[in-house]
Computed example of a mutant assay.
Amino acid sequence: MGKGRRGLVGIAMATAVVAATVTVTTAQAQPRGVTDAVRSDCPTVRAKVDRLEGRITPNACAFMQRQITFGELPTGTPPAYGDLGHPRVRAYLDIFDPEATLWEAGGEPQRGRTAIGTSITGSLALAPSLAYRGTDVVADGSTVMFGQWNEVTLKGRTIAYPQIARNVLGDEGRTLQARRYYDRAVLFQDTLPGDAPAPLFAGIADSGEPGAGTPGVLGGEEVPDRLAAWNAEDVDALLARTAGARLSGPGLDTPLTTEAGKRACLERLFATADLHLKAGQVAEGTTTTYVEWYGTASGDMGTGIPFGIVERFGPAGEWELYFDTLPLVADADTIRTLFRKLAS
């Protein structure tokens, strides 16, 4: 891709896209609970996000403040490609440790501030309107799962979408290792409707009666069994733990509440790709848990594709999946062509 296009695959597009039209997620809709009352730990962040839970260290607070600053700061005149001195680029790089790595779906990790900063200059040149706010955030010591609701204009279309920014922090709360979980496929549905690949979960819908039971928040001790279920494509095990939960995920216009609907969604995923995942980070809050699975996917579109999933288990029976469907429905050449067309 040309210089001005590289950044679109970068952090500005780091999303877990549910729909090109705004869809309110459970993290946005749920009211603040008693555990979200004003507290002395990082009150400036609490005032800016929908929900903040977990072990909030001074480093975590410093990170979240920088994350919010970048999301709110207007781009102004877009940066030239590689201009690391642009005010918004500087605010972005302030999030990262000089030796940081940043991984985004379908690619290899970017290493160091020069590579990371260069990527964001391309993104902001293409989509200077990018802005976001914090939604459901869990800090667990040096691990922060930062839920975001992003808005950006592409080809005259305003696209709103959620994202999970997963960060492992070092000194001064700067990110040592970042991974972004999002679905790029939806970027093309309204902007390039004639070229966009068919959505992975097209036609998936509820049928039958809603499931019963209260799933509760996943505990860290359950991670080994949960990981085994994902790698074994054990739909029964995955659903047994989430009976009664509402499943939200990329390409699903509304949450699935019936076992039949959730089963069809998982079976479609497993029929499309073989997943080879490892346990990543876990962030446990008072009412919310995020769990990360990271590895590769293989299928008709390629083998060994860098791939990951974040699951969110929420206080009101939410079960949310964040991952990129694009490399599962389009090969590498097609993806490059789509981004070239989007940037033209």
Rank of each mutant, 00 (worst) to 15 (best):
G4A: 11
R6W: 13
L8T: 06
T15A: 14
V22G: 06
T25Q: 10
T25L: 11
Q28V: 02
Q30H: 10
P31N: 12
V34R: 15
T35G: 14
D36V: 10
V38Y: 13
V38W: 13
R39C: 10
S40N: 12
D41P: 03
C42R: 02
P43S: 10
T44Q: 10
R46H: 09
K48M: 08
R51P: 03
L52H: 02
N59Y: 04
N59K: 09
A60C: 04
A60D: 00
F63K: 00
R66N: 01
Q67M: 11
T75H: 02
G76F: 03
D83R: 08
D83K: 07
V89A: 00
R90C: 01
F96P: 00
D97K: 02
P98C: 08
E99L: 12
A105K: 01
Q110R: 14
R111P: 04
A115E: 05
I120S: 00
T121K: 01
T121P: 00
T121C: 05
S123N: 09
S129Q: 04
Y132K: 05
V138R: 02
V138P: 00
A139L: 04
D140P: 05
F146C: 05
F146M: 08
N150T: 12
N150K: 14
V152C: 06
T153E: 11
L154Q: 08
G156K: 12
R157E: 14
Y161I: 09
P162K: 06
N167C: 09
V168A: 14
L169A: 01
D171G: 12
G173Y: 03
G173W: 01
T175W: 01
L176A: 12
L176P: 04
Y181L: 14
R184W: 06
R184G: 06
L187C: 12
F188V: 08
D190W: 06
G194C: 09
P199Y: 07
I204T: 11
I204G: 05
A205M: 13
A205Y: 09
D206V: 08
A212L: 15
G213S: 11
L218M: 13
L218W: 07
L218K: 04
G219D: 15
G220P: 15
E221G: 13
E222S: 15
A228L: 14
A229Q: 08
A232E: 12
L239W: 06
G244F: 01
A245P: 03
L247E: 00
T257G: 10
A260D: 15
L269F: 11
A271H: 12
T272F: 11
A273H: 03
D274N: 09
G280K: 00
A283M: 06
Y294K: 11
G299H: 06
G299Q: 07
P306V: 07
P306T: 06
F307Y: 11
I309M: 06
V310K: 03
P315W: 09
E320Y: 04
L321N: 02
Y322E: 09
F323P: 03
D324L: 03
L326C: 13
L328V: 07
R336H: 12
T337C: 08
T337I: 10
T337D: 13
F339V: 13
A343S: 15
